[in-house]
């Protein structure tokens, strides 16, 4: 499903260079749930952004769903993200001018599946995350937990091949975090491939495999 070979990322600030990833080899199969852990600055989020084609590596290869990322143009990557990836961000990343339903429907509309079908699919997705009663609400009228559930609904509404989640529970209270984690569990049970960055051990335990990063390298892999 997704594979990285000798993946590196270096940030430059004038003369100064910071090597965040120092050659990561990684592979995740279809239907797998992988948690990425590590202390702050270990390179977890950078690793996730590179795998999810949101950022460009300095070196190495990413092969996702059989396609080599470096051979893809910007537009092809955008289309790939639209059709095959789903994203859940730490801060929900919802569009403030769109209602919950519109936020979820937007990527579906961009896939040109028709307005009615897009809204029906978006509604279904929101009902699955128990927000069927909040369809017309703007993000500003939703709690943090609800916003994150809208974000998950948006990420999976189009049935992506792979779901990337960057610390999805970091800004949530325990109750909301548990609800979000429960959704991830259900998605995984339904066969969704998930790669999730998290700080929290208890949530990482749900994953089939946990990889630990430190100083830009994988230091251990743990199977649950």
């Amino acid at each position: 499903m997704i594979e990285t070979k000798n993946l590196t990322k270096t940030f430059k600030d004038g003369e100064a260079e910071t090597k965040v990833l120092k050659g990561i080899d990684f592979k995740a199969e279809s239907g797998e749930f992988v948690a990425v852990m590590g202390r702050s600055g270990a390179g977890k989020s950078t690793f996730l952004y590179l795998m999810s084609l949101l950022d460009e590596p300095t070196g190495g290869e990413i092969i996702i769903d059989g396609q080599e990322a470096r051979k893809m143009t910007i537009d092809e990557k955008t289309l790939f993200r639209l059709e095959k990836c789903g994203y859940v961000f730490q801060d929900y990343a919802l569009l403030p001018d769109l209602t919950a339903l519109e936020n979820v429907a937007l990527p579906l509309l961009m896939q040109n599946i028709g307005r009615k079908k897009a809204y029906a699919q978006a509604k279904e997705s929101l009902i699955k995350v128990k927000l069927g009663h909040r369809l017309g609400n703007l993000p500003s009228h939703l709690s943090g937990g609800e916003q994150q559930r809208v974000s998950i609904a948006r990420a999976v509404a189009h049935k992506p091949k792979i779901l990337f989640a960057d610390e999805p529970t970091a800004n949530l209270d325990n109750e909301s975090s548990a609800a979000v984690v429960e959704i991830f569990k259900e998605l995984h049970q339904a066969g969704q491939t998930i790669i999730m960055v998290t700080h929290e051990e208890q949530y990482a335990k749900m994953a089939g495999r946990v990889i630990h990063l430190d100083d830009g390298k994988i230091i251990s892999v743990q199977k649950n």
Partner: peptide
């Protein structure tokens, strides 16, 4: 930030 999110979730820059 929201323009970035739009692009991130696959909305074409031209749109």
């Amino acid at each position: 930030k929201f323009i970035g999110i739009l692009k991130g979730i696959g909305i074409n820059g031209k749109a």
